[in-house]
Design a protein around this nucleic acid. Sequence first.
DNA 1: ACGGAGACCTGTAACGTTACAGACGCTATG
DNA 2: CATAGCGTCTGTAACGTTACAGGTCTCCGT
Lengths: 368, 368
Amino acid sequence: MGERSFGARAGPMSGPRSGRRPTIRDVAALAGVSVASVSNVLGGRDDQTSPATRQRIDAAIAELGFVPSPSARQLRGQGARSLGLIVHSLLNPSTVLFVRGAEHAALAHGHSLLLTDLDREAAATPAHLDALLVGKVDGVIVTSYTAPDVELAARLRQRGTPAVAITSGAPSADGVPAVGIDNETGMRAIVEHLIGLGHRRIAFVVHSRASLHSDARLAVFRREMRRHRLVLPDELVVAVDVAEIALTHDYDIQAGRTAAATLFALPERPTAIVAAYDMIAFGVIAQARVLGWEIPGDLAVTGFDDVPFASVSYPTLTTARVPMYQIGRAAVEMLLASLAGEVPLPSVFAPELVIRGSSAARASSAGG
Amino acid sequence: MGERSFGARAGPMSGPRSGRRPTIRDVAALAGVSVASVSNVLGGRDDQTSPATRQRIDAAIAELGFVPSPSARQLRGQGARSLGLIVHSLLNPSTVLFVRGAEHAALAHGHSLLLTDLDREAAATPAHLDALLVGKVDGVIVTSYTAPDVELAARLRQRGTPAVAITSGAPSADGVPAVGIDNETGMRAIVEHLIGLGHRRIAFVVHSRASLHSDARLAVFRREMRRHRLVLPDELVVAVDVAEIALTHDYDIQAGRTAAATLFALPERPTAIVAAYDMIAFGVIAQARVLGWEIPGDLAVTGFDDVPFASVSYPTLTTARVPMYQIGRAAVEMLLASLAGEVPLPSVFAPELVIRGSSAARASSAGG
DNA sequence: ACGGAGACCTGTAACGTTACAGACGCTATG
DNA sequence: CATAGCGTCTGTAACGTTACAGGTCTCCGT
């Protein structure tokens, strides 16, 4: 690795202190100007600097390989240029797509991302989160926005840290800027699709540690069933609590399996199962296969999200596509806007029904 | 926005400066001690503090809700208490497991994680990464460790930022502490499993933007085939380059599909396909299904990693289990150890063969 | 020759923390 | 009664940056 080390050319002229990271003072000394001038060009306020000086400073920066210290900047009142991102379950590719969108947008604006996955037992106490985030980030994006998340966002705002949330439907009026997912549109499309296929006995499966989005989807599901004059007995709404969290396993899939097992044991089985999101649907399908059911022949299954896997699984999954990548980008843009003092305009993303192999017309043999 | 601001109780006593985050000086004033004493108990150096004083300081901290400023700490020479994590493709659940392990270990030591996904077009220039990481983190964990990663780790170390890498096999002697994955053991088990099932014409599929681990697995595959006196024509080793990266799609799966299509067009088809890792195997399986092939009847497929999905896909996937969660934990422990000045002892994790539905005895009809 | 307006540049006080070098009371010892 | 030793506590100089409040020129109009 034949790279020149920092102190290598510390020859006759009194070079920068050897072995240390160069500071703005070293740059100023090398360029023969004051630190203030260097700071000016660093901060892009170069209307106060002559082209010649500017050039000498740039050269000095390049020669020393100078990188400004984020801590010093932040201490002085500049932003940290990093954003906190609090997500639930990175094992859901949908979440990853969101993170990826957020990351790309953040990178485009020169910010780093501080990721926190709330998916852990009891460790995610408010105090912990404070210790991790306070003073390290300029703002925070909170996904899901369950009740504890609301609390978290409120506490952050109280501490003066702007927060952006992902809400269901149009952003609420509580003052937190948010990008919304129109769960209503997506779920209505799913229910109408299944009813159009002739299904009447339709079940809903969700993880019991419900997110705002799952809640919203279930509410819409209930309403749509009623609107179509279909009965929805309690036993057809299954909320699974996977108590023991195996850190290396995907408990959304496990929840789907458990729920499916419950539903299949019913005297009157459903002909279609609506999962709150794709990962649960995959679990349902896997369990159905174990029990010897044909999909979509014996049972139609739908998801929500359209994770990349949904188009290559067997059978491929009928689902509502949520543009998580774009939502991630939008959330960061919104956070940066509100950091810049602007009032960001709310945005809502509508899912789009994607019909694939896991749903088909109701089997004639099923009881009803 | 009916939030109470900090200064709400700024009553008779001269409270902290209203509306601002409390500083160590506010705590000192409230407790009636010097800032130095507060700093001492904050830093755990409370052997220099009487229990009574300590208690008053703790009380003041609690009352003000004081959180020390990370920037100020870091500026003064303390660590940033955050670690950089550079990964490739978060859409691979295997990577997520790693991140999760790293995050849990980091949290346990009170550190935050700065995540960077290198999976992007050309934006991940060294300058960009420097801007994102230099001065923000105490150390960096570099996964995969391809050639550019080596460069990156070297540059980071030159700047005085410790780095830990994930290497293939035992950590190399180049001085970077590392936790290793014993790809050799895993791949040998896979090859022997397939040969034991009677397969002779076995193909290997990999993404062309190969990681060190893919490289190592292919090398072992080649060697094992030779050792068993089996021919391995060039056309049976397919490295797919998915040129256009769709940010919202999983190009590992796409690579698997493309490779499978190529292999199936061969005059003499393989009876088994060894994928460099699970996500590619899923693509291979999906494409096989599209072309009407039965798995494992017409074709055996194996993966590597054992992502959660491998046990619920159809068919379930034979693979080598890599304990990514533990590896993530180990990497963080190692980084923290080397930050503490200790010389961490290297560790290597050996994959374990998991036989599932995607592999079975060679079909008698296949040509050889 | 003088004043004023720019254009360009500089010195320095913060920002919130920690490490260092003492200072201040005690008590025990000679 | 001086002194040393010890247990606590404190004042303050950094750390690297930016914002502010000027300073010094040069040029131009009178």
